[in-house]
Design a protein around this nucleic acid. Structure first.
Lengths: 221, 221
DNA sequence: ATAGGGAGAATGAACGTTCATTCTCGCCTG
DNA sequence: CAGGCGAGAATGAACGTTCATTCTCCCTAT
């Protein structure tokens, strides 16, 4: 399918047909949703014929799933990049700002679409759940690392905070997609501040799971 | 089928045709989503013919919108009910548990569906935004009342916390819909605990909007 | 020439909506 | 009290459209 490695050349041409199609589909889906988007729409947006789409994807569903998977990977990559940050809160803050402010609002809309679909389509459900699990795991791991380094007090409940962070993140996505006058600067700032406070141990998350581990720092895995 | 007007009785008979249709539609939408649900599906679920649906709703979209509106009203009613609670946190906790634990998971799924639709359909967007605004306003008002009563320290940022609560709530809805093994008991508990801590002033939400109002308690409106 | 990437018309199923027809019942008349 | 009339409720087949998918043919590069 992809040709000579010599030329990933002008415009955005040869890169990969599939990528072009996914880009087009993403724009369509954000504009009209999965179900109101027709293959003709995607074809037009991608600057090719409807029939030709089927050379690269076996079905419309495959495009939807391909898109969900691609997004998941992009995000996972971002997370991986800060895997071993030196200062947790700083890199985390950057990550938050990137995903909730710098990325276009369309990403949030697409996200809603994917979630809605995930409640019915087994494949998309799996993709979504895997993603959630991965983010969660990485978050908890990062926090525990930071605790090992003494950056974060060790009586805070790493897992609990990771869940809260995910919940807040999902909530931000929803609000950003739904409210046209969503003030990203302010809302993201507030959420980040709150997370910062939690990580400093300024408020506990419940008596239940206080901490099972010892605190005498032995950190790096 | 139904008899003498004397008895709005057994089963769920004469109440209102429209309600019966909305109930049926809700079940279908949760199962298959707005777009994969056909009018024939709704008709079958409602135990009537497709053509008859059009006696009560002018179009499929009207059913969708009717459903969104009905849900919004139900929730608003719940909020109104605790409008002047004596102990904020107690009644709030009950409200949270009701909506995130007792209500069936389908409500959360429907919510995702509505949100996704709200990003495109003007009518649904308006319904959703009105709802958000109302919940927000009421929350902030309740918190300020409680501050007036001295129940909550007045240096906490009522508006800021209201936004955080909404964000957490939206996030919980998403997680509940998406994760089949969502542990409502635990997650809702944790979120409620966090909100409780925030309301006790255990963590601030940023330096920006510390407080504009004086604190010398003058409360009841 | 030829292969294969691509275009775009064709296909057929599915769906929202309509409408002619049937059913149900309360009410009026004798 | 019987009989039948009429209005509103309900039915379900049919229509016209939309859309995913397929098919056929063309164009270009070798």
């Amino acid at each position: 399918m992809k040709q000579d490695a010599t030329s990933p050349l002008a415009g955005e041409p040869g890169v990969d047909r599939r990528a072009r199609i996914l880009d087009a589909a993403e724009r369509c889906f954000v504009r009209s949703g999965f179900h109101r988007t027709t293959m003709q729409d995607v074809a037009a947006e991608a600057g090719m014929s409807p029939g030709n789409l089927y050379r690269y994807f076996p079905s419309k569903d495959a495009i939807v799933e391909g898109l969900a998977e691609r997004d998941r990977c992009e995000m996972a990559a971002d997370f991986a990049a800060i895997a071993h940050a030196d200062d947790f809160m700083t890199t985390f803050r950057a990550l938050g700002r990137k995903h909730f402010q710098d990325e276009p609002r369309g990403k949030a809309i697409l996200c809603l679409e994917i979630w809605a679909e995930a409640t019915r389509n087994a494949t998309m459900g799996e993709i979504t759940r895997t993603f959630e699990r991965e983010v969660m795991g990485r978050l908890a791991a990062l926090i525990e690392e930071a605790q090992g380094r003494g950056e974060i007090p060790c009586q805070v409940d790493a897992h609990g905070i990771a869940v809260i962070i995910c919940t807040l993140g999902d909530g931000l996505f929803v609000r950003r997609a739904i409210l046209p006058d969503f003030d990203a600067e302010e809302e993201v700032g507030r959420v980040l501040h709150l997370i910062g406070a939690l990580l400093k141990g300024e408020a506990s998350l419940g008596e239940a799971n206080l901490q099972h581990e010892r605190c005498d720092a032995e950190a790096s895995s």
